[in-house]
Amino acid sequence: MTTTEHDDIARRLAAVRQRIRDAEAAYDRETGSVELLAVSKRQPVSALRTAIAQGQHAFGENYLQEGAEKREALAGEPIEWHFVGAIQSNKTRAVAEGFDWVHTVDRLKIARRLSEQRPDGLPPLQCCLQVNVSGEASKSGAEPAEVRALAHAIAALPNLRLRGLMTLPEAVTAFDAQRAAFRQLSEQQTGLINDGLALDTLSMGMSNDLEAAVAEGATMVRLGTAVFGPRPEKPS
């Protein structure tokens, strides 16, 4: 990675952090209440090192093998690793063993496997329940009507800690429509908290809808290209 590429990442990271601060101020959110999760899929280890040097320590990975290689290369760095990809049953052990957080739990079967496969000696796996607020057939996530029962069941598992809800809504450009989708998730989380669940995380918002997510209560926004620039082509 060239000096220019390093400088570009540093500039993008500073710009993203300013966007988050501006959104917090615009929507009466406490300063520092929204965390940046840098989604680093297909980015080289050198790009993560640049972000780490700028104080970024939470990274999201979509692919298990790539995530394992990066964890090995960056062993000893103070990194919090988040899994943000789709989870099939054959992936649960690798997620349970290698990550600190998982954002894409959408079925009780998957949650149970993650809990059973979390190694002894590690703290509980922090998790979010993914909700398909837009009802898109192409998207993963629990149906909104399933969320209450599913959240209570996940919260009872011994080696998971349910932190909150996550969504990846339909991509729309109208700000009010973006807010409406995120409001659904926020309202569901409020209902779960009223039920007695100790939830503190709303994982929602990406580069094109960050402000709408913050307006509706996001505590963690997931940004990739806005931080790192275009992703390298996926290997064939």
Rank of each mutant, 00 (worst) to 15 (best):
M1R: 05
R42M: 13
R112A: 12
A73R: 11
S134Q: 09
L197P: 13
A15T: 15
G67T: 06
A151D: 05
G164F: 11
K234C: 00
L160V: 09
D195N: 02
D8R: 14
P123K: 11
T219P: 02
D106L: 01
R183W: 01
N194A: 15
T201C: 14
A215K: 07
N132G: 04
T31D: 14
E216R: 06
L125M: 10
G191L: 10
T50R: 10
A174N: 15
A218R: 12
H57T: 01
L37Y: 08
E77Q: 13
A218K: 12
G191Y: 01
A111G: 07
A174I: 10
A174K: 11
M204R: 05
I52K: 06
L64F: 09
C127N: 10
S33F: 05
Q56H: 01
Q188P: 00
D195T: 01
A73C: 05
A14I: 08
A68Q: 14
E116L: 04
E72W: 00
G205A: 09
D22E: 13
E5K: 11
F83S: 13
E35T: 13
G60D: 10
P232T: 05
S236R: 07
A213N: 04
R29N: 03
R93D: 08
T201Q: 15
F175E: 12
S40F: 01
I79A: 04
T219Q: 01
L162V: 08
A213F: 07
E170C: 06
H152L: 15
G191H: 06
K91V: 05
R12D: 01
E143R: 04
D100T: 09
A94K: 14
L114D: 15
R231F: 01
T4F: 02
G224W: 10
C127T: 14
T173M: 03
A218M: 11
A149I: 09
W101V: 02
A58G: 00
D195G: 00
L64M: 09
A38G: 11
T31E: 15
G196A: 07
R71D: 07
L160Y: 04
P230F: 01
A149D: 15
E211M: 12
A86C: 03
H57V: 00
A212I: 07
L168V: 14
G229M: 08
V133G: 05
D28F: 12
L185I: 06
E66G: 10
G98F: 11
G85W: 10
E146H: 07
A181H: 15
R29P: 12
G205D: 12
Q184F: 00
V84K: 03
D200T: 13
Q54H: 14
V39G: 02
A75N: 12
G121T: 09
M206N: 09
L199R: 11
P123C: 13
S138P: 04
S207V: 02
F228W: 09
S40L: 06
A212Q: 02
Q65Y: 03
A156C: 07
D195V: 09
I110S: 03
V45G: 05
D8Y: 01
N62M: 03
G76A: 08
R71K: 14
I20W: 03
K139E: 03
S46M: 00
A15N: 14
L168K: 00
G121V: 13
R118M: 10
V95A: 07
G32C: 02
N159F: 03
E170K: 03
